[in-house]
Design a protein around this nucleic acid. Structure first.
Lengths: 191, 191
DNA sequence: ACATAACCATACCGGTCTGTATACTCGCAG
DNA sequence: CTGCGAGTATACAGACCGGTATGGTTATGT
């Protein structure tokens, strides 16, 4: 039995993942090499490959952790600002997004990753799908819990506005996009 | 006077741009090298650089032409299927999109390009902004011409649904996204 | 005392990246 | 006939790519 010990949860592993995450998000995945990541993390390529096995798996780890952290942030924000079911709880997702994106102006990490990985068999693609699936299901659930009929449909519509707002704000540069999406959601949910 | 003659409108220049466009869209910009482009176009790097000056400018040319062709396609589609002002003419944009995207499953070329170029001073960024601006203005104009009040706001909402649908369909894999966006638009416009 | 995991340092591998240089052929317009 | 724009072919530069190899250090736990 010589199972490969590839545990990323070590100090150096954390530093690598932190560094890689920042660089991947800011500059893009293909634009960032493993040499740079190792350097910036104050470690070596050897350690990087010992911890993550390949750049592809490091990318997948980046996407997975980013999804987890966003969901944590979002869940916490909802619990804090709109704990009761209702339309406001749906709209609060946009507030969380706006707050989250205040300092992250490079758009949706998963959409960006799809731009670079889509159409390949990269392990990150599954993470991308998962995140989108989660957000859609969340919207449907929140609309349903608000007691609004046709939750499946209206949740989907809210989700489209959510995705559209991120694109419009970042790639399009429309500063009011989050507010616009929030307003459109309100109209759809209270019609 | 030694003005650089850099005219891309030559047979080889066209072949290069055709090839580059297909490869950039399908695989991503950074994933495609100039060697490959020249090879696939049946020409040489020398000619590529004589015609376009740099990879960056070739990328900008790719984006510019893609925007032009989409606008041509869209304009023609609207003229053909919904020549009269009204809500249907707004919704017809989604029909055009769905038809256009039937064989192009790699999403919005401009969003994808933003994922790779955003945050830099790449000449393609201006083209990306221009395209998004055009689509928003188009939606506002179509809503206005339909005689619907609050065109600025409702046009923006329609635009968000349009952008969200592309992301949801491609990165998210939600097959019904275009139809959903169309339905949501109809609700917003006839409320 | 010994193994093991984690880490660091350095060098190397084959390949690809953007971009340049040299030298030649062809067609065409003055 | 001459000059030029367009294209072909090939080679090269210098950097960077993902990934591997070798070897040594430190800390921990048995």
């Amino acid at each position: 039995m010589k199972t490969i010990t590839r545990n990323p949860n070590t100090p150096a592993g954390e530093r690598i993942l932190d560094t890689a995450s920042a660089l991947f998000y800011e500059r893009g995945i293909r634009a960032v090499g493993v040499d740079l990541i190792a350097d910036e993390a104050g470690t070596t390529k050897k350690t990087l490959y010992d911890r993550f096995g390949s750049k592809d798996e490091l990318v997948a780890a980046y996407l997975t952790r980013r999804a987890d952290r966003w969901i944590d942030f979002l869940t916490d924000h909802l619990e804090r600002h709109a704990p009761e079911p209702g339309p406001e709880r749906v709209l609060a997702v946009m507030d969380a997004l706006e707050e989250r994106m205040r300092e992250q102006d490079r758009g949706c990490a998963f959409v960006n990753a799809y731009a670079e990985l889509g159409g390949t068999d990269h392990p990150g693609n599954a993470v991308i799908r998962e995140d989108k699936r989660y957000m859609r299901d969340l919207f449907v659930r929140l609309v349903d819990e608000a007691g609004i009929p046709d939750a499946q449909v209206l949740g989907a519509h809210a989700h489209l506005l959510y995705e559209g707002a991120i694109v419009a704000k970042t790639a399009g540069g429309f500063e009011g996009a989050y507010g616009e999406a929030r307003a459109a959601m309100a109209r759809l949910l209270t019609a």
